[in-house]
Design a protein around this nucleic acid. Structure first.
Lengths: 232, 232
DNA sequence: CACGAAAGAATTGTTGACAATTTATGCCTG
DNA sequence: CAGGCATAAATTGTCAACAATTCTTTCGTG
């Protein structure tokens, strides 16, 4: 999953051109992988010290994190790491269902032939990976995101692409990462991915959208159950 | 169209609690109504002087404007007011079609009975307003947004609501405001609004979504034609 | 005359200090 | 002893100066 705004310095390491954006990435990672736990109070001076920078760029990073909804901020009162609840995740999955459904429709209309073939090849890779790692959930997840990212790209709709990548996928990653183990849905997911890819290859916009929506709606039903079980 | 984040001071005037957010609102308005024209270079020190504040809060305002895509910023190089082109507007209308279609579906499922009646009353008002003002486009537009806002509210989906209000509607407002006169589509729009409201009242999710998508897709076709004519 | 390099100007990024606001503490009063 | 008010501490918001980067202009050279 290529990052859309980043530069590469001479050593080949990824590096943003500004302190604020580097810090933004750091904190984002810390939140998603749970190092900064949900509901944690964000104290600017503390974090500035921790990351070894001044409060100025840190504030910018916080504002950007607020925009992608990883942080909630109340004027004069401070900010906290978001706490994911079932309602919020539902809202996110529903929005994603809508946008990715449209993305699949557009992909069926616009995706170049060679990219369609490349997409099919990607799914072959995934199948091989599933056979080998059998249960190693991490790669499955990244593979899943990879597939959805390609569809979003193929839609050629900048707004949809940015919102899926910038906001929705991040929150879903965070939810997955912090909700313990998921049942291995890899095989059924792969099957559905294949059907979607087939619909795109046949330029069947209607079917591509319907299948994508079902796929995501199905994923939500699984996640929902897990979240409900957790509350007990 | 109630503003979602604002406080009211003792004099009853609307006022944000922080300099940055007030400035954000000011600049946003200036961009949308064209006082700050498309492509204008934003120079922080100049604007800070103009608004009588320091560069700190101004920078925060700029960052927020960048997030809602009213400003484009390049690190170390500066920022400009966005320039709307046909492709971008298409992306926005397509995204809106997707999200508002879903919102209409959810509204058909979730909207309380009394709000449905209130929605119908709103449309009566609009009809009366159209008869009276006959061509005064401004009120039609605000009425239009009013209707769509209520649907978005009724969806009870926070993510969809925030993105429609915070970003998409703003850009559409800006496009409308700066693309000269539009042909009066008020009557056909009202008719379509009525059909959507009826579908919601009958709890027909499928129909509500389809009608909303057609409605927005139709609006885009009009706007598209106008934008194309402008380029000549 | 065109092209490129180097110095200067303009602009953004960053810092630390100060002001305003909120939250916490403790005292007083009923 | 409970509740509320005043004071103190902590935290966020704002400011102005400094550093780093980019854009512009000018000069030299082919």
């Amino acid at each position: 999953m290529p990052d859309l705004l980043s530069t590469t310095n001479s050593e080949g390491t990824l590096e943003s051109p500004t302190l604020a954006s580097r810090t933004f990435e750091s904190i984002k990672a810390d939140i998603i992988n749970g190092e900064l736990r949900q509901g944690t109070k964000i104290v600017e001076s503390d974090l500035a010290l921790k990351y070894g920078i001044s409060r100025g760029p840190l504030r910018e990073a916080i504002h950007r994190l607020e925009q992608i909804k990883l942080i909630v901020r109340i004027p004069h009162a401070g900010s906290r790491v978001i706490t994911l609840d079932s309602k919020m995740m539902q809202d996110i999955y529903v929005a994603r269902e809508s946008l990715e459904g449209m993305a699949a429709r557009l992909a069926a209309r616009l995706m170049p032939q060679d990219e369609i073939e490349s997409l099919s090849a990607l799914l072959d890779q995934h199948e091989a990976a599933i056979d080998q790692t059998e249960g190693k959930a991490y790669f499955q997840r990244e593979g899943d995101i990879d597939f959805h990212f390609r569809i979003a790209m193929a839609s050629q709709n900048q707004w949809i692409l940015e919102n899926l990548n910038g906001e929705l996928y991040q929150l879903i990653r965070m939810c997955r990462h912090q909700s313990g183990r998921f049942p291995s849905r890899a095989r059924t997911a792969l099957e559905q991915h294949r059907q979607i890819a087939a619909a795109i290859a046949q330029r069947d916009e209607e079917l591509a959208e319907i299948l994508m929506r079902r796929h995501i709606s199905g994923a939500w039903n699984i996640v929902k159950k897990i979240l409900e079980d957790q509350d007990d």
